[in-house]
Design a protein around this nucleic acid. Sequence first.
DNA 1: GATTTCCATGCAACCGGTTGCATGTCAAGT
DNA 2: ACTTGACATGCAACCGGTTGCATGGAAATC
Lengths: 333, 333
Amino acid sequence: MIKRTKGVTISQVADAAGVARSSVSRAFTRPDMLSPETVERIMRAAETLGYVPNHTARALSTGRHGNIGLIVPDIANPFFPPLIQAAQTEADRSDFCIFLGNTAENPKQEDKLVGRFAGQVEGLVLASSRLSDERIRAHATQLPLVLINRDIEGIPRVLIDSSAGVRQAVDHLADLGHRKIAYVSGPSASWSNKQRRAAIRAGASARGMELSIIPTPAPTYQAGREAVDAVLGTGASAVVAFDDLTAQGILTGLAERHIVVPRDFSIIGCDDVLGAVTFPALTSVSNHSADVGRIAISMLLDILRSRNVADVRYALDTKLVVRDTTTQAPSIG
Amino acid sequence: MIKRTKGVTISQVADAAGVARSSVSRAFTRPDMLSPETVERIMRAAETLGYVPNHTARALSTGRHGNIGLIVPDIANPFFPPLIQAAQTEADRSDFCIFLGNTAENPKQEDKLVGRFAGQVEGLVLASSRLSDERIRAHATQLPLVLINRDIEGIPRVLIDSSAGVRQAVDHLADLGHRKIAYVSGPSASWSNKQRRAAIRAGASARGMELSIIPTPAPTYQAGREAVDAVLGTGASAVVAFDDLTAQGILTGLAERHIVVPRDFSIIGCDDVLGAVTFPALTSVSNHSADVGRIAISMLLDILRSRNVADVRYALDTKLVVRDTTTQAPSIG
DNA sequence: GATTTCCATGCAACCGGTTGCATGTCAAGT
DNA sequence: ACTTGACATGCAACCGGTTGCATGGAAATC
């Protein structure tokens, strides 16, 4: 059985060191204001008593808790972990701590989480938010906000601009002789999905290809697997998926039907988070999920430091990474 | 440009409603102490002013912040997301909020994170901690702690007991005629790894099989892929991997060498988190990662409510889930 | 040696709530 | 009519820090 030690307060340290509470406080926050000997004495006393500054009390009087919140729709989606890692590392450099929230793709939960975090963080990063523009704007009046993959004017945001990469994907397929392709789409509330769909539409029409759009309920492996029949029904010889997870599902669905990739069918993912994990290795549109996390945090920290919100829109470019799931269209193979 | 509204305090509401600050406080926390009309009036005032209780201030005076921390070694490992989800859901039921920390398998980072969280959460769940027993014990004196997959006496813990499942896996392979098998192991600091290794050793020796142990630096896809040569070098016809991620890597490594699973080689994972995602679908030892998350949180909440720490050791059973990556040994096929 | 300057430290108010106790009011009890 | 009690509300201390201002002594200046 382990017994808990109750908190040592600044007063106890002050008594032990024979100084005022304010001096103890200063020893920790502005030691330059005190004589070295005093600091030394206070520190020694603090050490022996096992004093640790109370974060909550400090936050109350300074208004700064040194925390920032990061809210994502689905931790399980491989797009997010690298983003989260990078965010954490970046925050760390400035001694900020990340509080992570997971909304399970549920706007209600997201709203609740934002409210809950609002009181304990200095700022918030919303990644791929599924909230309405109005709700996001409302939250932005409460505390500094940075958005990832969501384009709302007036709110600082960092976006992965898939247009270029998706366009390359379409061109790649066109060059390989594919005439009919399909796009297995993502969540309708997703900015990325709208953007990718638009890019693929434009590309297909520019190259004179026939394009079918297959909807899915959510960007998951299962959804991809279940979309395969619909995809095959379109007569397409190649497919672009909203993300790698969906693409992976499609890969399995095809294998289950004994359709060999890439010989019989070509497939391209987006986000390039699983490229090296699938077999065959997935051709995919790169993203910079780690960069995005890092940049969003650094943007938020800048805002916190300067205390004013510029209307920044930071867009990252993408490109196609060709691996082993694309090859010439079967008909001309 | 969005402008921020600054906080409305309890005093402002009190003035507006013509009552004392304490009454406002009670209107929110113990409305039964006040007359319904007063509560009504206060609420109306609070509403129009847009008052929101300050979480930090409340936490300071009550000592309760309604947060609990959850620290995991690697969010990217598919074992954790379901656990995290379940933990979040369970915490939610009691109106607690989860702060998630990721240590990137780094004990230093874990130590730092614990210290950082300690001040802002009422209790902490450490999942698959890579810290030493001593460090964990030290932290346990600071705040209520619950461990997942770490067996330290005196600290409440919930464990996935893989012994039974791993034993079934070994028996399964033995029944299929495999005589030489390999175990691709996990992190040396991992309790789960020690436990699985012991179970497989016992099983192999009981069934008179030859067993080789292949070490890996971390439980990742890449590590699995790179372990393949070593595995093949042992002459084994089947392998059990520390976890599904590693198994997935091995699966790819084998495919790259044109070894067909399960015809030429059988493979079993652990944790059963990727079973349905790989192709062929992976035979794996089940776990209850969601249950574990839920139970750990509920245990912690009990401790917080009762204010005393019982020495609970909660072990969950496992079993083998047979899918498509295991079949009879080639020699007797 | 007297005056000014500076530096180290203490005092006390403050951050925004919560809560034990005191007070005042009104109705019930005798 | 007088006590008793229940109930609604206010007062003020407290949670554990931070910080502007005051103070006192030593060093620097003339």
